[in-house]
Structure formats: C-alpha cells, structure tokens
C-alpha cells in the first residue's frame, strides 16, 4: 500500500473509533435528566459512561491493532488508558456515594434492589483485582503466561459485567448509542482475546510469537517480554 492510502486508512480507523467512543458521551450530555441532577451525580454518571467508552480502545491498544499505536506505543497507551479507567471508576462510585450514600452502600453490599448494581460492583472488584495484580505481579513472581491469563480473564469479566450493568440502567445515556457502544466494546474485547489467545498461537511459527508480535523472539518461560 502506498503511504497516502495507508494514511487515509489510519485516519479513517481513528475517526470511526473516536465516533463510537465519543458519540455516546456527547449524546448523553443532551439528556434532560441532567437538569434534575446535582454536580456529584453528573460527574459520577459521566465517569461511568467514559469508563465504558475507554473499554473499547483498551484491548485494541493492548493488541497493537491501532495505526500509530502498534506494539510498544500501544502498550504504553494501554497503561495510561488503564489508569484513566481506574480513576473514572473511583469517580463513578465516589460521585454516586456523595449523591445517595444509602443507595451506594446497598450496591456495594450487594443488597440493592436493582440487579444491575451487582454487575457494577462485580466490574469494580475486577478492576480492583487488576490493579492489585499490576502492582504485585513482580513481587508475587507471576510468570508472564500466568499473568497474561489472569489479566485477560479479569478483563473479560470486567467487560461483560460493565456492559450488563450499563444496558440495564435507565439514565443519561441514550438507548441506541448505548447499545452501539456496548456491542462495540464486547466485539473489540472478544475479537482481541480470540485473535491473541486462539488464532495467533494456533498459527504461530515454530519458535513462537510473543503476545502476537511476530518480531519478538520466543523467550524462556518466566522471562519478561520486551516492555
């Protein structure tokens, strides 16, 4: 492919991705419900919407699919987006707690009348565990293969729980844009996991690829991959 064509494709990919991610957030800003809510509720709600939106780009960055953010650059962004998700989840729970302490306590203690609260709390604990593993994985001496498996498993749980949580909520998000984003999030996570963990290992050349990167050379078990 010529450079200009490649550039056009790259631009198109980023425009589509940005539209799917930012569109639903912008639509939600037009919700009439916002006029009836206090600042903490609005911040908490949008922190949740943005978390959902960030879950779309997160696996694509990890896998290095995105033009301009391949391999190491993608991984670096993956860490920043991961940090942003953690901050947003903190703001989400905190904002809701300030808005209505009893409703948030019920949710956290899993005695809320709303079923979606359980999925929200499940996703939150999945993220808490992910953060704990990110911090402790070297200290725990986790092998890279183990870490990858646990991290992917947690990611799948977080995505499934978050989407289930979001779809059941009647809130600021508009229905069609919410479903669009949720389907995209599930598709991105599912496709990435299937590609990285099933397809690529299956077709990997003898000697192996590391994490889907054909340029990386296979290392001994327990070795860190190139950062």
């Amino acid at each position: 492919m010529q450079n200009s064509a490649r550039g056009a494709v790259a631009t198109a990919i980023w425009i589509i991705l940005a539209t799917v991610m930012i569109g639903p957030v912008l639509v939600a800003t037009t919700s009439p419900y916002l006029a009836y809510r206090n600042t903490a509720y609005i911040i908490g709600g949008f922190a949740g919407i943005i978390s959902l939106s960030l879950l779309l780009i997160q696996p694509l960055l990890a896998a290095g699919y995105l033009p301009g953010a391949r391999a190491i650059t993608g991984r670096k962004w993956h860490r920043w987006v991961g940090t942003a998700i953690v901050v947003c989840v903190g703001l989400h729970v905190g904002g809701l707690y300030v808005t209505s302490p009893p409703d948030t306590q019920d949710a956290l203690l899993l005695v809320s009348p709303t079923a979606f609260s359980v999925y929200g709390v499940l996703a939150m604990w999945g993220i808490v565990l992910t953060v704990a593993l990110v911090i402790l994985r070297h200290r725990m001496g986790l092998r890279y293969a183990t870490w990858r498996l646990v991290h992917n498993g947690l990611a799948a749980i977080v995505v499934a729980a978050t989407v289930t949580h979001a779809l059941q909520i009647e809130g600021a998000m508009e229905t069609v844009s919410k479903w669009g984003l949720c389907i995209a999030v599930v598709a991105a996570t599912g496709a990435t996991l299937i590609d990285l963990r099933l397809i690529r290992p299956f077709f990997a050349p003898k000697g192996g690829w590391i994490n889907g990167d054909p340029n990386a050379r296979k290392q001994k078990a327990g070795d860190e991959p190139p950062a």
């Binding site: 419900y33 209505s100 709303t114 979606f116």
Partner: peptide, 8 residues
C-alpha cells in the same frame, strides 16, 4: 418522577 440510580 425521573429515573434515579438507574430506575424510575
């Protein structure tokens, strides 16, 4: 009445 905490 408007939806609050996800439910009206």
């Amino acid at each position: 009445i408007v939806p609050n905490f996800g439910q009206p």
